[in-house]
Each structure stands twice: as C-alpha cells, then as structure tokens.
Design a protein around this nucleic acid. Structure first.
Lengths: 357, 357
DNA sequence: CTGAAAGCGCTAACAC
DNA sequence: GTGTTAGCGCTTTCAG
C-alpha cells in the first residue's frame, strides 16, 4: 500500500486532524502502552511481545499510516540509519556512479546517505563532517582521500566507522575500495607495447593522491618489465586532473623536443588535454601519437578518435564501499580489509593502423 | 578557530570524557540555567539575555567546542534547517551543476540539502519524499517535475514549501526556475535560418515534460515566424532524452527519405544520437547537415564537429531555485512566482561553410 | 532578565 | 508479556 497522499489525509479516527500519527496514537488505538507498540513495531524486539498484540499493533499502524519519527529515534538511540558520503566534486562524472552504487546498497537495508560536496576544500570538508556527526550519521564514506589526510586519519582512529572509495590514504588500516591501478596500467602499457610503441610518455596525476602515485609507480614498473628506458624526460607531473594540465604537459613535451609515439594519461581529462595539444600542433591521433586514458568517462567514445581508456567500475566501487561500511557498522571489531577491483582496457582504436616509429 | 579534531579531544574540564558537550555542560560551566544558555546561543533570542551573561555563555561554548545537536533541536522545533532535493538521475551531467547552485546558496544561510536520486522511478520518489518529510525537512526542490505530476501537486497544495527546477508542472502555481526554452529555440532557429537552412527537423523530447513540449511549441512558432513550412514529416517525437532515441529518429527520417539540411535536437543527448546516425549513413556534419543541441553538456565541445548548442545556466537555475525556496520558507504567504533564465547560443560552427541546399 | 518545568517522539532499563 | 519510568538535548511557555 502506498503511503497516504501528503497533505490531504482525511485524518485518522483519533481526535487530531492533519498531524502525523505518533507512536502514542497507535498505542492508544491498539489499546496498549506506547512501549509495547514500540516493541511490536520494531522487528528486532517484536519477539518480546504477544503475537496477537503485535499483529494488532501492526494493523493499527498500517491503517493510521504511522511512520516512525527518525528524529526522535535518533535522539534516543544516537543512531540514524544514515551515513555521510563525502565527495570532492559532484560535477566530475567520476563520482555520480559511485554515489549510485553506494545508495543502491544502502537503500537495500534501509540506510540513507547524506551527500556532501567539498569542492576540494578541506575547510568545507571538516565543517561538513562535523555537521554530519552532529546529525548522528553512523559512519562515513570518503571519496576525498589524500595520501596524507590527517583529518580522516584522526576520524578513523577515533573509532568512527570510515571507508575510503576510489582513493586511499598512505596509512593503510582504513578500509578502502579502489580500482586496481597497477593492473590497469599494466594492461594499458602492454596494449601500447603490443602496438609497437617503445617511447611512451606518462602524464602523471597529482602525487598527493593514491591514484596519481600508483599509476606512476605502475608506469615505471611496466617500463622495466618491457625493457624500456625510464627516461625522466618522458614523465610529466600534472598538478591537477584537468584538461588544461594535460594540454600544458604535452605542449611542454613537444616544445622540449621529447620524442614519443604514445601517451599514457593518468586519467581521461588529462587525455583530453593531450588531444587538444596534439591537435594544436597539427599532430594526428592515432596517426602520430596513440593516447590511452583512465576512467572511461561518459562520451569519451565520441571523441575523434574515440579514446582508448582503462575502465574503472565506479558503480561497483561504490557498492563495495557501502558493503564494507555496513559490515563495519555491524561488526566494528572485525579486522579491516581493503578491496581492489579489476580494471579493463576499453580498446577503441584496435583497428588503427600500426604505429610508424 | 577550527572545530576540535574529532575523536582526540582531551576532553572538557567537566567530568565526562570524550562526549560531545551539551547545552547543559555549557550552562553548568557558565553558571546559568540551560534555558538561559539556549537563549544566549540563539541569535534570535539573544536580546532576551543580559549582554554580559550572553558573552560569557558564548565564550564557554567556544572553549568547550559546543555544537548544538540538530536532532534534539529538530525534535523540539519540527524544523531542521534542511531541505530535500529530488533529482531524477545524478549521472546525467545536467543535474550536478544544479545541485551545486542550490547547495551554495543554502550553505550561505546555514541550510543543508538532502539529495535523493529517484532514478526516474515514481515509487522511489514518493518513498524518498516521505522519508525526508519524516526527517522534518522544511521544503523541497524537485528536478523531477512532469507536466502532470499528482504527487508533487498534492504535496504543494498541502502547504509544503515546494520549488521546481529545470522542469515545470502544467499547473503553474508552484514556483519554478527554468530556462527560457522558447527564447532558446528562437535563437537556435534564427541561427539556422541565418545559415540558410529552410528544411529543419526537430527531434522533440518527451512530451510529458515541460522542456519537451516548450521546445516543440517554440520550434513550431519559429517555423511560422520565419515563414517555413510546418511539415509533420520534419518532426520526430523521441520518448526519452537519450542518444539511442536521437539515433533512431534520424535513421527513420533518412529511411523515409525526408529532406532536411538541419536538425534542432531537443537536447544534447539527442544531438549525439543524431551525430551517430548521420555518420552511420556517411553524411558529414556540418557539411551535409547542421545540428544544434540543447544544454551545452560537458565535453560536447570535443565532438567533431564541436556541437553548437543552446546553453542553459544550470548552476544559476539551482541558485535561483534555492533563493525562491528560502523566500518561501520565510514568507509562506507571499504570492508565488516563477523565474525564467535566459539561454544563449554557443555557436561552435560559425566558421563552417555555408550550407548547400 | 533568568529559572523552573514541560515536552517534542521515541526506546531501554526496570518493575510487575 | 506488558506497563512504568526515565531521558536523549533542546526550546519554550510560564513564573518570578
């Protein structure tokens, strides 16, 4: 049965008019004490009450359209069936699927997520978390992790159930769900090497983020594995995951006369900037240079050429993070663990002509 | 001063250890009654208390790091300084900027937004709204409006402060903030006509949404204004704002031998599908057909050719919606009004060769 | 101007 | 099994 239409209820049979029915109303109508009604309504305590009485209470609650008041419940229990979800920037297409994954899992067990946007501002982050804690959220999922992040470290150390998603901290005892960046870089590099590339450039992302350092480290490892020279000139550190940073890096490479036939971009936005810079110099892609990105953002299949990229299962990242947090809420003392999800190469240029070196 | 680091407070001088200080703690420390402390802490009632005492209370609250408990406050006042924000699909890049606009404005006056994703599912919507109402949100912003939407109509009619953003309802007494679709279509059509187009097709969006019908109506109006024939063949109704729907529509047009040199797509996703279908038939763009979209989604400037589109100021839409709702919360009886924000053409093909008809 | 007392709606000891 | 009581932390009458 759908909940009663808001604002237009004819009113329960009790005296009051348009007020939402309270537990006391239900109890009164069912002829029991509010405490009994509470026990009957609560699945966890229902066994404490006579089966018949319980049924009657449920029945009355249903006809009255009773909905427990979560505020009152929170005040009493200091729990809220909700968690905080801290996102650096919702307009980055990376994050909405993570949010969806988290919400879907939480929703399945009656939990909600408070979503907050920090805009990458630590002050906003601390303020938001403080505000959420005062609302008795039971735990947090952070998508804002930095390698060194004292605030989250303290929060977790203080016993607040905390899970990281997409990005990890350097201290590793906080559970996290991330993509297997090392594995992703490995398949991307193998792809490039298989195409014949020997001079591959890496546009590395911010080195205060686990994604940035892990992909860079894996890039170096891959160079070694494939017997390629690890030339400092073929590495560009980008200070932000932004198109402009990618464009700047590639422009500098070209200006410096660095020779390369392929680019492993730390993510798709850097790859986009790379496209821009190459086009700006009249270089064709993949004719002159092959580019591989990271994330498989929406619409990168519409670029010309379509961007080959390493797909990260963001929805699943979120779903797993939610599971991890729920598990932690149920069994706070279980040892923590982190989850690495496999990445896959989305090859959109497999029909491209072999590289001319 | 930053809030005390979570979980590691040395503890206030009162007996308790890691507990958050309560109003009673502050009152005790300041040597006043909790009620007085409450009055002093609350800007609205501060004038009721002696200036010195008030200062002392504020001082103590500060050193103790006191943060009022919003749950207790909500239980007492049935207010929450928060509103519900109902989004059909957060992964649609349209909506995150709206969310940001709303949050920025609300945050400025101490309000929060609960964001819920309905996934376009009415059942999820009613459930989410019910849940938010029970959390005492003070009002709602809906981005899920449909022309006929009994649920929202009842909610608003029942007195719940409600604002629509991006999409309106047919009943117009619910305040809304939307883009000026008619104006947007007019400039888009003028653009196409100025390029020399006479046979222009419209891919119309869902006709249960205000955006869909308004753009279609404006398209017809523009045909009339420019003295162009309003041929039913040059109109395609798409049942969803989706790439696939746009592709299907254009494919059908081509199959049916409909002659056209330009397409006004109801939004960018339909335009994307249009690109696909044209490419699939070996037609070049803008060589053979010009396309104009709607929204200026991220990265449509990266398509080839870059998509000319009507930009909707989504962030501002959100910001205005928040203002409207806040105004409504403050003065519930003021007459409602709706806001139309101007749209602008983002011409990315102005250098394109003139059309060969 | 301040204190006392009540109560928002619910749950958890503790009786019976 | 069920009722009684108390209280989560706050605001708001009502006295004084």
């Amino acid at each position: 049965m759908p909940p009663p239409p808001p604002g237009t209820e004819p009113g329960p049979r009790t005296a009051s008019v348009a007020r939402r029915p309270t537990l006391k109303d239900v109890a009164g109508e069912a002829g029991v004490h509010p405490a009994t009604a509470s026990r009957a309504l609560n699945p966890g305590t229902r066994h404490l009450v006579n089966d018949e009485t319980a049924q009657r209470v449920l029945q009355v609650a249903d006809t009255l359209g009773y909905q427990p008041n979560p505020i009152a419940r929170s005040l009493k229990t200091a729990r809220s069936a909700s968690i905080g979800l801290v996102i650096p920037d919702l307009t980055n297409p990376l994050f909405p699927p993570i949010v969806r994954g988290i919400e879907d899992v939480l929703g399945g067990v009656g939990y909600n997520a408070w979503i907050v946007n920090t805009d990458n501002d630590p002050a906003r982050e601390t303020a938001a978390v403080e505000s959420l804690r005062s609302r008795s959220v039971e735990g947090f999922v952070f998508a804002t992790g930095r390698l060194h992040h004292p605030f989250i470290e303290r929060l977790a150390a203080g016993g607040t159930p905390t899970v990281l998603v997409n990005r990890r901290l350097a201290v590793s005892d906080i559970p996290s769900v991330t993509g297997d960046d090392a594995g992703g870089v490995a398949i991307a590099m193998r792809h490039l090497v298989d195409l014949g590339h020997r001079r591959i450039v890496h546009l590395a992302g911010p080195q205060d983020l686990s994604t940035g350092v892990n992909r860079l480290r894996a890039f170096r490892q891959a160079l070694e594995d494939h017997g390629l020279e690890d030339s400092p000139a073929r590495l560009k550190l980008c200070s932000a995951w932004a198109e402009s940073a990618g464009a700047k890096a590639v422009t500098e490479l070209l200006d410096d006369g660095v020779e390369f036939t392929a680019v492993l971009a730390g993510n798709d936005l850097l790859a986009l900037g790379c496209y821009d810079a190459l086009a700006g110099r009249g270089l064709s892609c993949p004719g002159d240079v092959s580019v591989v990105g990271f994330n498989d953002m929406p619409f990168v299949d519409k670029l010309s050429p379509p961007l080959t990229t390493v797909r990260i299962p963001h929805y699943e990242l979120g779903a797993e993070a939610a599971h991890l947090l729920l598990e932690r809420l149920r069994a706070p003392d279980r040892t923590t663990r982190s989850i690495l999800l496999p990445l896959t190469l989305v090859d959109r240029q497999s029909t491209a002509p072999p590289r001319l070196l």
